[in-house]
Amino acid sequence: MANKRFDVTHVPGAATIAIVTFLALYIPVLILVVNAFNGSDTAGWWEGLSLRWFAAALDNAAFRSAALNSVIVALAAALLSTCLATAAALAVTRGRQIKGQGSIAVILNQPLLVPEIVFAIALMVVLAQVKQVTGYQGLGYLIAAHTTFCIPFAFLPIRARLSGMDLTLETASMDLYAGRFYTFRRVTLPLLLPGILAGFMLAFVISLDNVVVSSLVKSPGQETLPTYLMGELRRNLTSEIYAISALLLFASISIVAASWVITRTKQ
């Protein structure tokens, strides 16, 4: 830096507040993890390091089926919403303004404007009728619901990537008489990939996180990890809950770490 007399990046107190914030964010989570490794029967009193609660959770069929449902729904919803959002982003970001472009963007972001509980109850009311008519009770409803609220989240990073992209490469490809699809597959898609990947991961996490919509839309016997955890919480606060929470925490750390590594290698 050229000017040593005054370092504008140094604002007194900012560092202190920042450190306090980080501690405040992490200490509760650390306590939770420590509780998960506690061998004691009731939460609260330390009785030595133990993996028994993790074993209990993994041994629990209800937990396993909830975990499987969560993964299926999150994968399917992230995949679907990313595909839909990619197509939509291509429609509203490239080239000249088209008629109604503004309304497309508004509709795509509409799920963000509706409070979660309102979205969840409205969907529950409508799906109850659909379930009655079709008699189908499968995971499809959860996947459809999650896909809907994941679209705007997948859309954001894809659009950001797309609007920062240079058009000349595509134009060059088209000039060389490459077909529209070929150009998309060989030029646009590879350039867009980091955005798509970011969108997919965001959608996956948003889906995995959801409890309100899932609990109102799910059919009998269906649980996702968060709805299962919510139910367990209502029933009893055993150390198994800490173990499940810790597992979810490890899952998110791995996802962040993975996306971190991916974006770093891309650069």
């Binding site: 939509a88 291509l90 429609a91 799920p111 979205f119 969907l123």
Partner: peptide, 28 residues
């Protein structure tokens, strides 16, 4: 043609949101 092509690209996403979010809100 361009308008039509791009609307059809956005159409699947718009359909899902209309059916699963806008319609239920209308019912509310």
């Amino acid at each position: 043609a361009e308008t039509r092509r791009r609307w059809s690209l956005a159409l699947p996403a718009l359909t899902v949101i209309t059916l699963c979010s806008i319609l239920p809100l209308g019912v509310m």
